[in-house]
Design a protein around this nucleic acid. Structure first.
Length: 418
DNA sequence: GCATGATCATGC
DNA sequence: GCATGATCATGC
């Protein structure tokens, strides 16, 4: 056993061999078959006095040929990971594995009863995607707690696996618990294990639907008075977001239950014809960072791989703005490829002349535009010039497509708009 | 009326 | 001080 910081599996293997005197293996059986316990070693960071997950917790590999034959209760996954010994260590960069501290205390973990409805829905969503011959389209954004994350390193990473109902090769993936979900496991003080209080049986989608149903079709003015919210100044750009958060039962800027599931909340205001007033912005990038990044590691890619919750307000023909639609959305595979193309194009152009980046005419899906405090808010480019900060945007036209495809059930959806 | 550039308010 | 989510403003 060599002491190699780079080998991410080493610490787990060391603990298994030196402490528990057993072999590390990649078998579908739990690490301790007699006890039915799977051991997982994972890094944590300390933030504001609390332990938080360094990353998602990767569990067992997904066998595309096997999972389509399975049900949750008797699945390979639940056999292996139904009961886990979670061993945490404090991740400190550049520290050799032997020197790491094991904090907080290990935890014998099984999935809480209240999370099961959602976990099962997640597992089934992954299985059913493979069943429909779309294993190659899997995305972490497909699900809420349990996701299908990329797994494999170096050359292995690009190696494709076969899937049962399609000739397309699919990237190898493993079940994983989202980072935010692991944070909840770590958070001892976490009182609420509920999905959305009072609606746990329905999963996050169902719970969200029942939360907002009473507001659908209601005018913005009525919603605001219901929630005791008021528009701030003339430039209150977060008013609609506060309404959305309020309707979803959250406070401040976010809804705790959706945060834990790593859901990206987006409020969209559309005109009578369902066209958004604006394109949709994403976090800014630094020119100098972008040229050294890979797509998979870019923040744009990571955002687009999330599950989104759209809260759509529409200006009616009667000039009254209403809550028109609330729906979850995951970016379709082909559109993720197109977003990637725009990103790669941007990376290439930033390297040549950062003044000229893709505009909305260059792609159906995404473009690049400023996102800065003002005209003086500039950062350095590879050409050693300084340009105003920018970010990626999803085109308003693309967002319109998404909304039209998902808002059919809204109170005043009119098929003529399709 | 859209595309593009410019900027605001807020929370951490 | 900056990242974030969002909207304003202007020219074509």
């Amino acid at each position: 056993m060599n002491e190699n910081v780079a080998n991410k599996g080493d610490l787990g293997a060391l603990v298994e061999q030196l402490y528990f005197h057993c072999d590390s293996s990649n078998s579908p059986e739990p690490d301790f078959p007699q006890a039915g316990v799977e051991m997982k070693t994972t890094g944590v960071l300390k933030r504001d006095g609390k332990y938080v997950a360094k990353e998602r917790l990767v569990l067992s590999m997904i066998d595309y040929h096997q999972i389509v034959l399975e049900e949750w209760e008797t699945s390979t996954f639940i056999k292996k990971c139904g009961l886990m010994l979670l061993i945490f260590y404090l991740y400190e960069k550049d520290k050799a594995v032997f020197d790491r501290k094991f904090v907080p205390a290990p935890k014998l973990f099984s999935f809480p009863e209240s999370d099961l409805p959602q976990l099962i829905m997640d597992w089934e969503a992954i299985r059913d995607k493979v069943k429909s011959g779309r294993a190659h389209e899997l995305s972490e954004g497909d699900t809420f707690y349990l996701s299908a994350c990329r797994k494999g390193s170096g050359g292995e990473r690009e190696k494709l696996r076969s899937q049962p109902f399609s000739d397309m090769g699919a990237k190898s993936r493993a079940f994983s618990l989202k980072q935010k979900y692991v944070n909840r496991i770590l958070d001892e003080s976490s009182t609420s294990n509920e999905l959305l209080a009072g609606h746990s049986g329905a999963g996050i989608e169902g719970a969200t639907r029942s939360r907002v149903s009473k507001y659908l079709g209601m005018s913005v003015a009525d919603i605001a008075s219901h929630l005791n919210e008021a528009r701030g100044g003339a430039n209150d750009k977060l008013f609609y977001r506060r309404l959305a958060v309020g309707m979803l039962g959250g406070s401040g800027r976010s809804v705790a239950e959706l945060d834990r599931a790593d859901v990206e909340l987006k409020t969209v205001r559309v005109k009578a014809d369902w066209a958004p007033k604006e394109s949709m912005s994403f976090p800014g990038f630094k020119y100098l960072d972008l040229i050294n990044e890979q797509w998979e590691d870019s923040s744009f890619c990571q955002k687009l791989n999330k599950k989104f919750l759209f809260v759509v307000f529409r200006m009616g023909d009667d000039h009254v703005e209403r809550l028109e639609a609330v729906f979850f959305w995951t970016m379709p595979y082909d559109d993720r490829l197109e977003a990637r193309r725009v990103w790669e194009l941007t990376k290439e152009h930033v390297g040549i002349d950062a003044r000229f980046l893709p505009t909305s005419a260059d792609s159906r899906v995404a473009h690049v535009r400023p996102k800065a405090a003002n005209g003086n808010d500039k950062i350095e480019t590879p050409q050693r010039t300084f340009l105003v900060k920018k970010c990626f945007w999803l085109n308003a036209g693309y967002i319109k497509e998404v909304i039209l495809a998902n808002a059919q059930n809204s109170p005043s959806f009119d098929s003529r708009h399709r």
